[in-house]
Design a protein around this nucleic acid. Structure first.
Lengths: 343, 343
DNA sequence: TGGCTTTCCAAAAACGTTTTTGGAAATACT
DNA sequence: AGTATTTCCAAAAACGTTTTTGGAAAGCCA
């Protein structure tokens, strides 16, 4: 009989107040048929005695966990970490303001992502799920839509009919390419993120659109797909530089790739921003400390996270009938690596 | 009557199998008086029909949430983020391997830390709590010890009688100082992290110990306390350099401070590692991209997180009678900023 | 074959809340 | 004064599991 776990339950609180359990519960949950004075007394006692409702019990009865799950997808590199933590911070801020908690779960490897979602949903572990790195056809999105479980993503799919927030990578790639073209570059390469992800497709189309508008020819050999691993940009850039006709500028899908590309450029005795211009994306901390400092696109991730959090909360509150689709522009941060073409 | 939420409960599963609810439960939870064949059949059906127990219900009855809370303390700067995400990753890995989930909650401001702990404990939201940035006298530690709620920290307190893992900042400061002394530096400054935190005291004592052993005088004016904010190191270094007798080397409590210090050095037209040597701590990503690359101390944070996770799990499994105290050494990563004293 | 283990399983209690139901007391209206 | 309405509150049901309790069926030994 290890009953005395020390925890104060609503029963003890009621007894202490000489009230019935239900009255205490109704006072605490803001129901309207409780006398002003009674409610005050109850709240005071709860405060004083350090009572708060047992979460599992409240969930079981109330059908709501007051929790949102954020699924982090591998690989997240040491460099790119701030990206996700900034996002997380924003999401948590939105949730906290509405009394929701954040649960974080890390999916190591793509295979695990579906497992994690299934598990979370089946156990009714949380009220909604947020995740990033969407793919054009995304199994996770399809499943959650099918069973109509609340969710929101950072990133789009081919099917836009659900809640998402996205950064406009089409715009960034377009702007980067256009800018380089206007600086006189003729051969502009694209070191893109993996085509598995939606945003890589958007980047590619922005790049192509810009080339067309600037009346520059598109060369297949100038488009390379990189992985998200750390050294990936370096390898791809080396190949690019080994070609008979070198590019004089390169647009990178993200800063990790760009930093790798700059390494490759330097190793050939060249200088980023002189012989070869480089533009990245994401504005990770190292971007401003590389030499020369990397020109890139940035955005306040915390506010993106805040938006993402609010979107799910709206959905949970049943506010919007139609899905919310929010596209955010990133801003060019011109530093030292976007310079006029040589000669 | 919105009963048909679609969720498959253990009752339906039992009915489907022509078994009683309790038998299904016992089969699933590994009790021993269930026939082999029956257990197999139950597991198969659970798998096929996508059943997993409702988490809140299991918690309510079973008294265990299978969840561990990690409290992130503000301020965590954009730069230092990887520190925590690496740690989180390791913790989550340990938990996941034992079927536990990770809940992350961010404490914005010191005042909120106690609130968050109280809330988590009172609602029985998780089985254990992990947090970092311990202080010599730590209210959180005292409270959790008093009510004997399981927890572990990254960092020590004056009272060592609980589960903790810590990085040996006394050793790093000692080693940094000794190294600089052996490079001929006579005036070695310390740009320390806030004395509010335990590890700052350890760093200070390591620094002092080293000065004594190297028979160098200790100057109060060469010891400065910085905040964790981003520009803090720069301001402190400026002051140091404005003194009549400049230090020729500086030991920094962390890399964010060190990077700021290097900025200050450069702004005076000096070169880090030439006129003034700098050694940091943590090995954040920018450290290797600053110019010149920063000499610092590093450690595999993921493995530290793993250890931390295992320590709480041991506690939850009731394994150790005595608290586990684990002190880990960081390793010097010599790059470009620890160089012989000028002249 | 009769009693004793062992192996299996069903019914019911319990976990700590929230919500529903129903009714008593106090107030307002004719 | 009698009825209708509002204001308050207690008892009990429900949420979906796990664990306890008790007992039936099957196997074993003499």
């Amino acid at each position: 009989m290890k009953r005395g776990t020390g925890r104060l339950g609503i029963k003890e609180l009621a007894r202490h107040l000489n009230l019935s359990v239900s009255t205490v519960s109704r006072a605490l949950n803001g129901y309207d048929d409780v006398r002003r004075e009674t409610r005050r007394r109850v709240e005071q006692a709860a405060q004083d005695l350090g009572y708060s409702p047992h979460h599992a019990a409240a969930t079981l009865r109330g059908q709501s966990t007051q929790t949102v799950t954020f699924m982090l997808s591998s690989p997240w590199t040491k460099f790119a970490d701030p990206f996700f933590l900034g996002l997380l911070d924003g999401v948590e801020m939105a949730l906290q303001a509405n009394g929701f908690d954040l649960q974080v779960v890390m999916a190591r490897g793509h295979e695990r992502e579906m497992d994690i979602i299934l598990r979370t949903v089946e156990r009714r572990r949380s009220d909604a799920i947020i995740f990033a790195r969407t793919r054009p056809e995304d199994e996770r999105v399809e499943y959650l839509k099918r069973i109509s479980f609340p969710f929101a993503t950072l990133g789009r799919c081919n099917d836009p009919d659900f809640d998402w927030v996205d950064l406009d990578h089409s715009q960034t790639a377009w702007e980067a390419t256009t800018r380089l073209a206007s600086l006189g570059h003729q051969r502009i390469a694209l070191l893109n993120t993996p085509m598995r992800y939606s945003y890589s497709h958007h980047a590619l189309s922005g790049y192509r659109q810009a080339l067309k508008e600037c009346e520059l020819p598109e060369h297949e050999s100038l488009i390379q797909e990189c992985t998200l691993a750390q050294g990936s940009g370096m390898g791809a850039m080396k190949q690019l530089l080994a070609q008979s006709q070198r590019p004089s500028a390169v647009v990178c899908g993200n800063d990790v790739i760009a930093v790798g590309a700059m390494d490759a450029i330097r190793r050939l005795g060249l200088t980023p921003g002189v012989e070869v211009s480089v533009i990245g994306c994401d504005d990770i901390p190292v971007a401003s400390y590389s030499s020369p400092p990397l020109t890139t696109f940035g955005i306040d991730l915390e506010s993106v996270g805040l938006t993402l959090g609010r979107v799910v909360l709206d959905r949970l509150n049943g506010k919007p009938r139609a899905p919310q689709n929010i596209l955010q522009n990133m801003e060019l941060i011109s530093r030292g690596t976007d310079r006029p073409a040589p000669r």
